[in-house]
Amino acid sequence: MTSFEGSLDGSVAVHRMVRLKRELDAEEAYVDAFAEWDASGEHALWDQTAGDGLGE
């Protein structure tokens, strides 16, 4: 393996780590947003209107 090939392997690893970090951050943000929405009571409004027009 040349030095250049080793650099590419390292670059690929860094890109994968960055992508994984973004995915984990997004997952955490989604969990936080859902918890905030759930605590707000807006889910009750959603439940009342989510089925409007279905099954008719």
Rank of each mutant, 00 (worst) to 15 (best):
W37G: 00
A44K: 14
G51I: 04
D25P: 00
S3T: 12
V14T: 13
S40F: 08
A13W: 06
H15N: 13
Q48R: 14
R22Y: 02
R16V: 08
A13V: 04
F4W: 10
D52T: 01
E56M: 03
R16N: 10
R19Q: 14
L45P: 00
A13D: 15
A50S: 07
E5S: 09
V18T: 09
S3Y: 06
L8K: 05
A26S: 11
E28C: 03
S7V: 04
Y30F: 09
Y30M: 08
F34Q: 07
D38V: 12
E36N: 07
D38A: 14
A35Y: 14
V31Y: 04
F34H: 09
G6D: 04
H43S: 05
T2E: 15
A44E: 15
E56R: 08
T49S: 11
T49M: 07
V31L: 10
G41N: 02
H43V: 01
A39N: 13
G10C: 01
D32W: 12
E42K: 09
M1I: 12
L24V: 09
E56N: 06
T2W: 10
K21A: 12
S7W: 05
S7R: 06
K21M: 09
D38W: 13
S3A: 13
R16A: 14
G41K: 02
Y30V: 05
A39L: 07
D9I: 08
T49A: 07
T2P: 12
E56Q: 08
H15T: 09
M17N: 13
A26P: 02
G53N: 00
G10H: 03
V12G: 03
H43Y: 12
S11L: 14
S3I: 08
A33K: 00
D38L: 14
E42S: 08
E42T: 02
S3F: 05
Q48A: 14
G55T: 09
E36M: 05
F34Y: 13
E56S: 02
F4K: 12
S7Q: 06
G6M: 01
H15I: 11
E23T: 09
G51F: 09
Q48I: 07
D38Q: 15
G6W: 00
